[in-house]
Write a protein that binds this DNA or RNA. Structure first.
Lengths: 329, 329
DNA sequence: TTGTAAGCGTTATCAT
DNA sequence: ATGATAACGCTTACAA
């Protein structure tokens, strides 16, 4: 017992005893057994993290998460889920959650597979009072903290930005209603665009990316008045670059393109893609902070918080200002 | 005790008892405490993984690792190290290794910060007989399993490929001697190129990527006879695209470019970059297999294995065949 | 086939 | 300030 106190620096202890014990510990290379400490204290200082197997954007979220958790002396128990497996992915996710619980993690950070999970799906988590923070998905029927981008606002910013640059006929490449993030960006964009007279938006709204190229070609050829496009993700923007190239449409001279997500290919496209930076590391950091706070809060009653990090535009060279006085030619 | 046997399906037990216990377990929603099981059995079924914080290439290694480990019922304890912090990174790494040990992981998979660690650096790991597999770095003075790309061979493949395509004056963009992977690719390339008469290699050999653009410009202007370049990493290849653009050199008409690593920007470059696929998921999978085998092997005496995954060329559109009969103009 | 006893390494609690 | 005791939940070893 005295040894425990000396090594952890907890409680009253004589300086001399403390030093003596520390010396002995060093001599015998004592190392604590964190498993048993976890059992005993009820806190493992281990956080479960569940992300899509194809990390992409989440690598940086993970990095932010990791750094912040490490700063609070937490480790990360990582699970990856292959998202494309449909129902099987959901089963996998649930199983991994149970495993993390069995491992006695102190909290869970999760980018859920599907948007419409309910409290019931997470019942084991709640029963054990393990704090849960979701990333990038607001689960309507789940009462837990959530963290993500303010996608609606970002969509608004996109519209305002392109309109400010003089564009009035704009293509909106969106991804349907299934994924909440893309849906919000689209809705935000439309809400802002509608407020400005003389602005016309052509919209592609396909969940399947394969359909986008065709639709984009149709839109651009039948509406030559379009001078700008907002793509709800950089992947669509990159696709649009190809379509434009095939049609002989030059970016940004003939068509301005604004992407979303700063997904890594942006700087390598020609011209470099202007896009939204979601600050993924900040998202991770904030999620970790929320979780740690929740773990340490004795009053379990605090309502679920939905925190949001603002994305902002990273200007590169794919958007042109077409206001007459700025482009005199 | 009987319950333990029934729930784990281990040992002799009456069918009736087993079922009765399982029903009770279900009724009370019994879940095992994996911490205590780990303490008791000496196996936590948890593997420590330490990767660079800036995962990049390692995201896919991690994915392969994860899937293979999961198949063997292992979880992952993840640590990230910020590589650019020099000595501090090494301290961090060491601390994380100790932490994983305290957490009683059954094995460790590590992409080490530095190439010249010795057995001493890992002494705590060896003392506890925890298997260690390194990724992408052959530590000369450490007796542990290692997994990576066969970089020397890949370098040879690169030379042979470009030579087969008719190139005789080739630029080799390399990264000095510090990082073993790049060094091996360079040496492999040179070893194959030297064997063929009439082949001349101009070499840039700078660790700092910033110097590459200048050097490349010099090389290309003073040696207009150069028709191809092999870049030891895609990042250098992307840089070379820019340099070429500035100099009015067209790819692949005037200059063929072959990259390395398939780092993600390749398909988005113009023209799409031909490069080496290192099959990172396979590397992860093989590393996991090696580790699991090592964990299960009772005879600890088996010598360290160095397994290697062959990289191969992913042909896109940045390398041109300039043999006269194929390009009649 | 089932059950008993001991022990894993630590901390909480209470006593000295 | 220090120490004794119990407890955490499980499995190994052995007994019945």
């Amino acid at each position: 017992m005295t040894a425990s106190r000396a090594l952890n620096g907890t409680g009253h202890i004589a300086r001399a005893t403390e030093e003596r014990i520390q010396i002995i510990a060093e001599k015998y290379k004592y190392r604590p057994n964190l498993l048993i400490r976890g059992v005993q204290t009820g806190r493992t200082m281990n956080i479960g993290v569940i992300f899509p197997a194809d990390l992409g954007f989440y690598t940086n979220v993970l990095e932010g998460l990791h750094d912040e958790l490490l700063a609070s002396n937490y480790s990360i128990q990582l699970s990856l889920i292959h998202q494309h497996l449909g129902e099987h992915a959901i089963r996998q996710e649930h199983q991994q959650i149970l495993r993390l619980l069995d491992l006695r993690v102190d909290g869970i950070i999760l980018r859920p597979v599907n948007d419409d999970a309910s409290d019931l799906y997470f019942k084991e988590v709640f029963e054990r009072n393990i704090p849960l923070v979701t990333i990038d998905r607001k689960l309507e029927n789940v009462h837990c903290d959530a963290l993500g981008t303010n996608d609606f606002k970002a969509g608004q910013q996109a519209a305002e930005y392109l309109i400010t640059k003089g564009h009035r006929n704009i293509l909106l490449a969106a991804t349907g209603d299934i994924v909440s993030t893309g849906r919000e960006r689209r809705n935000g964009f439309l809400s802002s665009a509608e407020k400005v007279k003389g602005v016309h938006v052509s919209i592609i709204n396909e969940t399947d990316f394969k359909h986008h190229e065709n639709e984009a070609r149709n839109a651009l050829t039948s509406h030559p008045e379009i001078t700008a496009a907002f793509c709800v993700t950089d992947i669509l923007a990159a696709g649009l670059y190809n379509t434009a190239l095939k049609l002989g449409i030059r970016i940004p001279k003939d068509l301005s393109v604004l992407g979303f997500g700063n997904l890594g290919m942006g700087p390598y496209l020609n011209p470099p893609l202007s896009t939204f930076d979601q600050h993924p590391a900040k998202i991770g950091k904030a999620a970790a902070q929320l979780l740690v706070k929740r773990i340490n809060s004795t009053s379990e009653k605090k309502r679920a918080q939905q925190k949001t990090i603002s994305a902002d535009i990273l200007e590169r060279q794919s958007v042109r200002n077409i206001n007459s006085h700025e482009t005199p030619r």
